[in-house]
Computed example of a mutant assay.
Amino acid sequence: MSSSSPRSSPVPFPPGVRPPLADDPRHVGPFRLLGRLGSGGMGVVHAAVDGAGRTVAVKRVHSSLAADPEFRARFRREVSLVRRVRSEHVPRFLDSGTRDTVP
C-alpha cells in the first residue's frame, strides 16, 4: 500500500503552462486564471478558463504601462486589429478590457 495520498501530490499544469506567481490575480473579469503562458515587455499572458469552461488565453499589460496614454492608444489599435483576424490557425478573440484600470 502506498503511503502517498492523492491530495499530497501537486496538480500538474498542462504543457507550456507555468504556475502563477504569488501576486498574480486569480480572476480577470469573467476568466479564472490557471497559470502563466509567457511574459514580455508588454505584459503577461495567462492560461485561463471562462464561464463556459473553455480554455482561453488572457493578456494583461504591466501596470506601469497602463498609465501611459500613448501605450493605451496602441493597445486599443492592437485589439481592433486582432478582432478582425479570422483563421482556423489563430485563436478566436473573445473580449477586451481596454478601458479597465489595467487592461
Results as ranks from 00 to 15, higher is better:
4 S>W: 07
4 S>L: 15
5 S>I: 11
5 S>T: 15
6 P>V: 09
7 R>T: 15
9 S>Q: 14
10 P>R: 04
10 P>D: 03
11 V>L: 12
15 P>F: 10
20 P>M: 04
20 P>H: 06
21 L>S: 11
22 A>E: 06
25 P>W: 11
27 H>A: 13
29 G>K: 02
29 G>W: 07
30 P>G: 10
31 F>S: 02
31 F>K: 05
35 G>V: 01
35 G>W: 00
35 G>Y: 01
37 L>Q: 04
39 S>Y: 07
40 G>V: 02
41 G>A: 11
42 M>P: 03
43 G>D: 10
43 G>P: 10
45 V>N: 00
45 V>Y: 04
49 V>L: 07
50 D>T: 01
50 D>C: 02
51 G>Y: 05
52 A>Y: 09
56 V>D: 05
57 A>R: 07
58 V>A: 04
59 K>Q: 01
59 K>M: 13
59 K>I: 15
60 R>S: 07
62 H>I: 04
63 S>M: 12
63 S>G: 15
64 S>N: 05
65 L>C: 06
65 L>D: 01
66 A>L: 04
67 A>G: 07
68 D>I: 03
71 F>Y: 08
74 R>T: 06
75 F>H: 08
75 F>A: 05
77 R>I: 14
77 R>A: 13
81 L>E: 08
81 L>M: 09
83 R>C: 04
83 R>L: 06
85 V>T: 00
85 V>Q: 01
86 R>S: 14
86 R>N: 11
91 P>Q: 02
92 R>G: 07
94 L>P: 07
95 D>C: 04
95 D>S: 11
96 S>E: 14
96 S>F: 04
99 R>M: 13
99 R>I: 05
100 D>W: 15
100 D>H: 12
101 T>Q: 15
